[in-house]
Amino acid sequence: MMKNSQVTVTKEIADDNYFYLRSCIRQNFFPGAEKVFLDILKNKLGKNIIDNANHISCTGIGYHSDIVPYETYQAMVARQFALMTEQGLKNAAVSCITSYGGYNEVMKTWKEFPEEEAKARKNLKNATGRRFEIPENISHSCDIIYKFRHDIAELAQYKLINKQTGKPLRIVDHIGCHYAKIFPEKGIGGAEQNTVLSAIVEAWGGQSVDYPERRHCCGFGFRHYLVKNNRSYSISNSKKKFESMEPYCPDMIITNCPGCNMFLDKWQYALAKIEGKTYSGDKNGIPVLSYEELAGLVLGYNPWDIGLQMHQVDVEPLLKKMRFDYNPDEKYLDAGGKFMGQPEFTGCLP
């Protein structure tokens, strides 16, 4: 059987000088993940990455929930590019999958329909006076971690090994749909056998586990999650994934997309409340980590510095398997070391 990571990669990933574009959802729910990503790039890998205060949401969620017209979306994307151009940078590092797909979609449209690009330039110019150059390289931040996965492995303080059994941790992945489904050539390994996360996992000593519904959507569905009465769609899709991965007894789920990371975490909790069951064999649920968070752990960051206390499904079982050196008492201490209260309940089932 071929290893999941053994697929030829044709995608180019810039190796330095990035313009960082943040994600609404990731900032909102997992701000620590973006923080640790920047920290790893700057301080561990010595890269230049600019975190510009002027960039705004790309409005991709509005675009895909159909209240933002495509022209406006193109102009908003154009503005991000303009900020980057003004900074003298040509490589984008995108934190959000929706944005990533959106930037690629806009670039593709401009390539095929130059009049659309002209319109976007005009709109941007009229509105802000800004101009832009088309980026040379757009990478999702997972691409960058992927590119430097071996460097990270060398710096690693922990391996993805279950120290209790000595075997690699069994890790299932979930690739956000917009990462590679819209433009398969823009994702490592393409749309079908995507390897961006499995290669990271394997590079750090873990075992990437395939499961039948690996490619299925998490169920965000934009408007389906945004309107409360429609959320059944969202949870049904996540449920399908959990059911599919359950027999493989994964130690954790690694995710690519900020939204997926949030859904796979929260829907486990909601399903436990509705159906009284978890898919992990215990009451906690399967820990869900993004690749940045996992990189942080491997490099030995304090889990509470990188925001793992913000997950509903507790990450402690994973930390224990890794024999990770952490202080459980620090979990709910604020920046000044003061107790800031704690959730009434964590995990999935009481």
């Binding site: 929930s65 749909c177 917009h178 489904k181 393409g190 749309a191 299925h216 569905g221 934009f222 769609y233």
Partner: peptide, 8 residues
């Protein structure tokens, strides 16, 4: 759901 799974 705009997941675009249909596209590839």
């Amino acid at each position: 759901g705009q997941c675009m799974s249909c596209k590839p």
